[in-house]
């Protein structure tokens, strides 16, 4: 268990950061957005959320069935 926690900690806190400044002063992820690849990330997150919400709805339905039986 401790190994997993250590691994997760490393994953979360050791990702590289770059400090290259663009001309406009504040650096934003404009490159990522102009290439359009950000939509891939949004699609993945929406899919995960949709699946979790569908799962919640199915649990809700099961509980309702049990309530009606009792």
């Amino acid at each position: 268990m401790r190994k997993y926690i250590a691994a997760i900690y490393l994953l979360l806190f050791t990702a590289g950061t770059s400090f290259a400044q663009s001309d406009s002063g504040v650096e934003m992820a404009d490159g990522m957005r102009s290439s359009g690849k950000i939509y891939v990330v949004v699609a993945v997150i929406v899919l995960i959320l949709l699946a979790l919400i569908a799962y919640l709805f199915s649990i809700d339905r099961k509980v309702k069935k049990l309530e009606q039986k009792n």
Binding site: I38, V41, V46, I53
Partner: peptide, 10 residues
């Protein structure tokens, strides 16, 4: 929640 994920990134 779905809206916040989409609009939150885009």
């Amino acid at each position: 929640v779905l809206y916040s994920a989409i609009a939150g990134f885009l």
